[in-house]
Design a binder for these strands. Structure first.
Length: 749
DNA sequence: GAGTTTGAAACT
DNA sequence: CAGTTTCAAACTC
């Protein structure tokens, strides 16, 4: 069983979507540890535990420390030291120089920082843009799409090498719990300031190193995180299980204030992890790294259905977004999302769960279901390797068929307590609105009763009950995943922008409508990024992938990441400020917030939502070029509008309160026993409004009307007379009711 | 829900 | 920089 530790998800969308997150000292980079093919997903620690418990001696562990170092000649060399005959791989930075200028001067370097880890099973070289990947028998190839001046450092410090090897040795001795052919890893750097092999932190024993180091003096240090995909011994019948892992990680941060920080480091924005096993198609691990768009991070904001890829959302938009944050070890991080290794050639099927607000997806693979998945140990106490990772919860579901009512994630996590580093503990306090459950192994059916499982939850089969496990992950990933299933390495090789992907746009699952972008011209030629994405697409403008947008020919997705990156670059070329928040902090003495460019309204008087200032609930400033602006402090129109708005709001509140009260009273009345007319005590006034009383009252009112008419009273005066008469009638009724209460015969007499 | 208005962004 | 075009959101009916 393979699992992507939920912790990995801390790098994923939400975190990045945050509009106000301030890049503090670290930005995290996760090392990805991929061990070989496994049917199920689970976190390493747990896997280790499992292995030690269930099969501690059966599986010799060999780790494959990967040493990656970068030199300053813009080459990233990946040295892999493993018990296997791995050879070195040299990867040249791929990105053309054209991209380089972005990073330095433009905070946004989304397009410039991608790292693709290809696990190469092929003998031929891969070419990605300017990069040439030489498998050399290596299992992983690290490529960087980053700026040529920004070497990506995948370095295992020389000082660490022995240790890593030692670990490997220990593992082989049977002591370790890691399965054979473990990992490879991968750390991603790619910042300009990154320098080779500095300050690499050693992972816990059994972990492999993968580190990205940054310049020590650099404020933004990168934090390592690891993704481990444990490899279990394969049974003769086992088939390849994991096909791809896709992590889409948006870029960190958008500054609410609009202030930009200098030299914001690139952040991993997305990854596609895949794994190849002998006899199976090669799989790739793609890790894209994007730059932070000159924004400071100080809060975490997430739009549920969007996959954020950059901190571009304007503050006012961000306000609308649901904020999902979790605190991990005192550090606020985004909620994790986990993408689980999928079976090869996954066939994703949506599952509707009645009553559940989550979407589930069933993944059915074509591979044999009898694979090598081993029952997961449920004895966490045997886990002696506290990895600094969050762990997916492994649930020992009864003869697992995920059809069984499963404990909620929270419960599950309690069930599987595990000593972990506090900083890596996953605390899920809020859930995305969509979840996906994906079987780690082929399964004929899912009987969904799996609500409330947080992303990252791994449902493992009970021992001896089969090979099916599930993991919960956000729906958008599945959408992306599904799309990406069409993408092969070949498509990835289109990094140069070759018009290879064309017209194959696929509608999202629920496909909606928006972002209609052309892909072909009349000659059926590929139209490059300039029109790939509608500049009017909010998702794109906000640095998000489209998801459930109803787009037509939408390229704003993971599958078309290359084109998308180009589009981003194009936008930035046109306007370096394109993705910066429109609402920023004003000058000294001005209001706290103001539009960065100012509005240009002509007809709306800046008092409608057409005006970006008004929409942001700020007043126009000196930089606005609006005509007939009424959106200033002393504007009577504005004040009137504000008063009206306030009054309307108050009215709504009052109405709501009145309705609530009335509803409560009616409910109360209905629940009371019917008043006994002869009880002498429970009579209510309305019980005295008989037909006769009503007729008499109406006669009185008519009489008043006639009298007013005779006297030549005005309409208003007549109405007043009638109302006064009506009041007297009501008083009479009430008085009669009061008397009747004290004297039951009063009304009858 | 369809049609109109509006202004941002792109284009020339 | 200014005028025009395109587009999606806001608005109106």
């Amino acid at each position: 069983m393979e699992v992507v530790p939920a912790e990995v998800n801390s790098l994923l969308p939400e975190e990045i979507m945050d509009t106000g997150i301030t890049l503090v000292d670290d930005d995290s980079i996760e090392a990805v540890i991929v061990s070989s093919p496994i049917p199920m997903e689970t976190e390493l620690e747990e896997i280790v535990n499992i292995n030690s418990t269930c099969d501690s001696t059966a599986t010799p562990i060999s780790t494959e420390p990967v040493t990656v170092y970068s030199n300053h000649t813009n080459q990233v060399a990946v040295n892999t030291t493993s018990t296997k005959a791995d050879s070195n791989t040299t990867v040249k930075p791929a990105f053309p120089s054209g991209l380089h200028k972005l990073g330095a001067q433009t905070p946004v370097t989304i397009s410039t920082n991608q790292i693709i880890l290809n696990k190469v099973s092929q003998t031929s070289d891969l070419k990605l843009g300017n990069q040439t990947l030489k498998p050399d028998g290596q299992k992983l190839i690290l490529t960087t799409l980053g700026k040529s001046g920004s070497p990506i450092v995948l370095a295992l410090p020389h000082s660490q090498l022995p240790q890593a090897q030692k670990v490997s040795t220990q593992a082989q001795s049977g002591d370790a719990k890691l399965p054979p052919q473990q990992i490879k890893v991968v750390t991603i750097g790619g910042r300009p300031e990154v320098k080779p092999a500095i300050g690499v932190s050693a992972l816990t024993p059994g972990s492999q190193l993968i580190s990205a180091t940054t310049q020590p003096s650099v404020v933004q240090t990168q934090q390592l995180k690891t993704v481990q995909i444990a490899k279990k011994p394969r049974t003769p019948t086992s088939g390849p299980v994991i096909t791809k892992l896709i992590f889409a990680k948006p870029i960190n941060s958008k500054a609410v204030t609009g202030q930009t920080t200098q030299g914001s480091p690139p952040v991993i924005t997305g990854r596609v992890l895949s794994q190849s096993t002998p006899g199976t198609p090669s799989k790739t691990i793609t890790i894209s790294e994007s730059g932070v768009i000159g924004s400071s991070l100080n809060s975490t904001t997430q739009t549920p259905n969007k996959i954020a890829i950059s901190p571009l959302k304007s503050p006012n938009k961000a306000v609308k977004s649901a904020v999902q944050t979790i605190t991990v070890g005192g550090v606020s991080t985004s909620q994790f999302k986990t993408i689980i290794p999928l079976a090869t050639a996954p066939n994703v099927q949506q599952i509707q769960v009645p009553g559940s607000k989550f979407h589930y997806v069933r993944l059915v693979t074509a591979t044999t279901a009898s694979s090598s998945t081993q029952p997961v140990s449920q004895n966490p106490s045997t886990n002696t390797q506290p990895l600094q990772q969050a762990k997916p919860v492994v649930v020992n579901a009864t003869p697992v068929r995920m059809s069984v009512p499963i404990v909620t994630a929270q419960t599950v996590k309690q069930v599987v307590p595990k000593p972990i580093n506090p900083t890596s503990q996953i605390v899920t306090t809020s859930q995305p609105q969509q979840r996906l459950i994906m079987p780690a192994t082929p399964l004929p059916q899912i009987q969904p009763n799996l609500t409330n499982l947080p992303p990252g939850t791994v449902l493992a089969p009970a021992p001896g009950t089969g090979n099916v496990g599930y993991a919960v992950l956000p729906a958008q990933y599945v959408t992306q995943l599904q799309q990406s299933s069409y993408v092969s390495i070949a498509s990835n090789s289109n990094f140069t922008g070759t018009p290879g992907i064309q017209t194959q746009a696929r509608l999202p699952f629920n496909g909606a409508i928006k972002c209609i972008s052309s892909v072909d011209d009349a000659n059926n030629n590929f139209l490059p990024y300039t029109i790939l994405y509608s500049r009017y697409c909010d998702c794109f403008a906000n640095g998000e992938f489209c998801n459930n947008c109803n787009c037509t020919n939408c390229y704003n997705n993971l599958e078309h990441e290359n084109e998308r990156q180009k589009a981003i670059k194009a936008c930035l070329d046109r306007n370096p400020e394109a993705f910066k928040p429109k609402i920023g902090k004003g000058k000294e003495g001005e209001s706290d917030r103001r539009h960065s460019k100012g509005c240009n309204c002509k007809r709306s008087g800046c008092l409608k939502n057409y005006c970006e200032c008004y929409e942001a609930k700020i007043m126009c400033s000196s930089i606005c070029k609006c005509i007939g602006c009424k959106n200033f402090e002393e504007s009577p129109e504005r004040k009137t509008l504000m008063h009206l708005a306030d009054a309307a709001e108050v009215r709504v509140q009052q109405q709501t309160a009145a309705k609530t009260k009335l509803s409560s009273q009616i409910s109360d009345l209905l629940t009371r026993p019917a008043p006994a007319l002869n009880s002498g005590g429970g009579k209510l006034p309305f019980t005295f409004v008989t037909k006769e009383v009503a007729e008499a009252t109406c006669n009185c009112l008519l009489a008043q009307a006639e009298q007013a008419d005779k006297k030549g009273k005005s309409k208003a005066a007549a109405e007043r007379m009638i109302l006064e008469e009506f009041g007297r009638c009501l008083m009479s009724v009430i008085n009669s009711a009061g008397k009747a209460k004290s004297d039951p015969c009063a009304m009858n007499c």
